[in-house]
Each structure stands twice: as C-alpha cells, then as structure tokens.
Design a protein around this nucleic acid. Structure first.
Lengths: 239, 239
DNA sequence: TAGTGGTCTAGACCACTTA
DNA sequence: AAGTGGTCTAGACCACTAC
C-alpha cells in the first residue's frame, strides 16, 4: 500500500488482488480470509477493504457468502467484452482492416433514425456509409447516423480507423449500446457489394450507442457476411 | 424510510429514487441535491445515501460529476436484458410457446462440449434436444448440454417451461453467459425441422452459461429461423 | 471561494452459515 | 457457539468544478 500515491487505497488493493488471481497466487475456490484481519494486516479500515473486494465481486472474480467467506471464482469468466468495434476486432486478429467510405454527408433524419437517436424527425444528422474490408475482401457494409455537434466525421479519418475510436478521441464517453442481431438472405445489391452469391445468409445488426449521460450518440445498421464473421459477447445477469 | 423493515435502508432509498425517476418526478438532467443535505433530510448517514446512489449509477440511471452534482440520466437507457430465455421471451410476447423434446439422455461429452463446460472429455453430461414452437409453428431448434449433478432435466418439465427456469428452481444462480451469434444457410435436415426452404438464412447461437462461482452450468448450440426471430440485448462498456 | 463528490477511518450491531 | 459478511453511523480531509 502506498499512501502517498494518488491512486486510491481501495483501488491499489483491488489491483493487487486481481493480479494475484490472474497469476494463480490465489487459486480458484480458495478463501480470501476475513475482512477484519485483512484490514488489520494491511493497515486499512474495513470499509476500504470491502470497497476493494466489492469491485472484484462486480467484475465476477470473487464471490462472497455470508457466514462462509470470500472465494476466488472457479473458472475465471472472461471479462465482458468492450463495446465491440469491428475495426479493432479485425486489427486485433491481424486481418489488416481497411475502410472504403461510400457516403458521408449531413442529411435530415428519417423517422426511424430520429426515433433511435431521440431527436426530431428531419433534424440534421451525419450519415456515413462504409464498406469494411479485411485482406482486401469485403467483410461488412456499415451505415451509421450521428447527431450533428458531437463529431464531424472526416472521410480521411474514417478510412484510417474505426468510428468508436474517433468518437472517444472527440471526447465522447461511450457507456452502453442496445443491439438487435438478426439474419436475412442477401438482396442482389447487397450480394454484389459484399461479393456473396445472391440469397447468401447475412448477419444484420442495428445498434444505438449511448454516452454516460444517457444520450444516444450513434445509430447504425450493419450487414456482415455470415461466412466471414460472427459476434461474440458476454451477458451478465442483473443481480 | 422504515427502519423496522428488514429491507436495508440504502435499498429502500434506491428503490424510491428509481421509482421517482421512472415516473418522471425526477426529470432527466435534473440535479439530485447534494449527498450531505439528502442524508440530513432523510435521517441517514452519508455513506448510506452514497450506497443507494451508487447502485443507481451502476444501473445507468444516474451520473455523478465531482464539483457538479448527481444528475438523472437524459434518455432512460432501457435496463440490461436478463439472460434471455427464448421461452420467457415468447411468453412475454403472448406467443404461446410450446416445446417438443426430441432427445433427453445422459451421454459422454464430446471434445467440444467438454471444452465448453470445463470438464473431462467423455465425462457424463445430459444432452437435451428440443424444438421450440410458437403458435404451433417451429421457431428454433435447441441442443443443450448440462453437467450431471446440477439438474436432472425431466422431459415433462422441459415441455412445460424453459431450461433456465428449471435451473433456477434447482438452486443454480445464473450469473453470466458467453455467446457467439452467427448465421448460415439451412441444411436440408434443418430446413425440414424448422419448416423453412432449403438454404434459408438461419440465426445460430452457441452459449455457455456460468453460475456465480464461475462454473459452467450449461452449453447450448441453437438454431433460429431468421424470418421469425432476432436477438436484442444491451452491452455495457466497462468503466 | 463555495460547493460538490471521492476517499477514508474506527467503531457498532445484525443475519447467516457451519460445526 | 464461533466466525463470516451485511449494514450503518458520524465524523474527517481532499480534489475537482463553477462562479
């Protein structure tokens, strides 16, 4: 514990515990020892220790049972995914992602877009259409709508990185997203764009993203080649 | 505040605040008033009030800003979905779900199943195959694997309700699930089972569910008619 | 400068689990 | 009966924001 550090004590402790769990120094299923002793040994108060433990419980690394103790979770559940960014996913997989911007302009919002973003129908929005490629093969067709004022998406930047990275760089704190995932057969236009045969199965996703104040900051309708892509994500049960 | 109630004070307060937000008595964007005053008015200590507020921040209903105050989030983000149960989803939508159990036996685990459940290859697992119908039309084909010892899935019960409800009733606390969602064209057998034309787009999902100790309690591979079903869910960004 | 949330302490009593 | 986490109190000082 470093009391001169600006890092909060509870956070220092939770990081140390997390590292110990990750490196196996705290075995799955093992007991952590009671909070009072732990606080005494570390020279901290019990609430501070509890705050550290609670943050790891929230992350799914520890389980507390009254009358029993605090245990390390058995199989380490992988961490909940970030809000998945196709660009980042592809880059992480070493797939050399590239983007071709097909459209980028300010337009009046349609009824569907206005409803998703919580703005007035006909209000200005940026509409961006992109084709996402990996190894020079098309992977997905992405159509996004952004309320004006948050980010002016420049075509050159959109071709160099993902939309979420641009939004974060512009100061938006992404908080959550609501998604609908479905599938359908490729229409002729879609098939040509994605180099799939007509009628091929496509994965569809519609997503509205919210910042930490609950404002919708982006609405997208995307189409993925089912032969090349699938979604992986983690759901948590509300406690 | 009812101090004689077994319901914790912080929980009573968070429920009242949540109700006030939901009913619009606390308008989006409005400030909550500082914690010290609030504690004084309610006859509570500040940590207790903070605990109530923090739980709503975690739920995404409030935002705290140091030096500013605590505000109600602008657009009420819908609550994160429960671990979606197809049965419950259909029932909630008034679709009269029904289940036909096609298979229900204990078998040795294949390599894929063993890896997903974190058990030894060849160990005993229950394998359950079900056809899920709504309004007497097939909706999905569900294949699940459960480690033995947690739940003995009886065919009669499986036809009357959903698997998750049975697991909860058997004392399992579901905590999280890791899912992969994709799409593919229907093979001849699948097409016949689901009353779709051959080659029709199908939505696929593979899911491993974990309890609160991190143990895998279920692995399923499911196929849905894309024409009849899509997934809706919410992702949260790790803070 | 005033007001806010962020962190921290040193106690206290209770409910639950296990033996 | 002993030990655990769950809840709660009444203070304290600090960092940040806005005016």
């Amino acid at each position: 514990m470093d009391r001169s550090s600006p890092v909060p004590l509870y956070f220092q402790l939770s990081q140390q515990l997390e590292a110990a769990i990750e490196k196996g120094r705290l075995a799955p299923g093992s007991l952590l020892g009671n909070e009072i002793d732990l606080a005494g040994r570390l020279g901290l108060s019990r609430p501070t220790v509890r705050q550290a433990i609670q943050s790891l419980v929230d992350k799914g690394l520890l389980v507390r049972r009254r009358g029993v103790g605090t245990q390390v979770v058995h199989s380490q559940v992988k961490r909940p995914l970030e809000l998945s960014s196709l660009y980042d996913d592809l880059e992480a997989a070493g797939q050399r992602p590239a983007t071709r911007v097909l459209h980028n302009a300010v337009e009046p919002a349609s009824a569907e877009v206005a409803a998703a973003l919580g703005i007035a129908e006909g209000a200005d929005v940026h509409r961006v259409e992109r084709l996402r490629l990996a190894h020079d093969e098309p992977m997905a067709y992405l159509c996004n709508h952004l309320p004006v004022g948050l980010l002016a998406p420049e075509t050159a930047r959109l071709e160099a990185t993902g939309l979420y990275r641009l939004m974060r760089a512009a100061g938006t704190t992404l908080h959550s997203a609501r998604q609908t995932v479905g599938a359908r057969a490729a229409a002729p236009q879609e098939a040509e764009l994605l180099a799939e045969p007509e009628g091929a199965p496509l994965l569809t996703m519609a997503r509205t993203t919210f910042d930490d104040t609950g404002r919708a900051v982006e609405f997208g309708s995307h189409i993925y080649r089912a032969s090349r892509y699938s979604f992986e994500f983690q759901l948590l049960v509300r406690p």
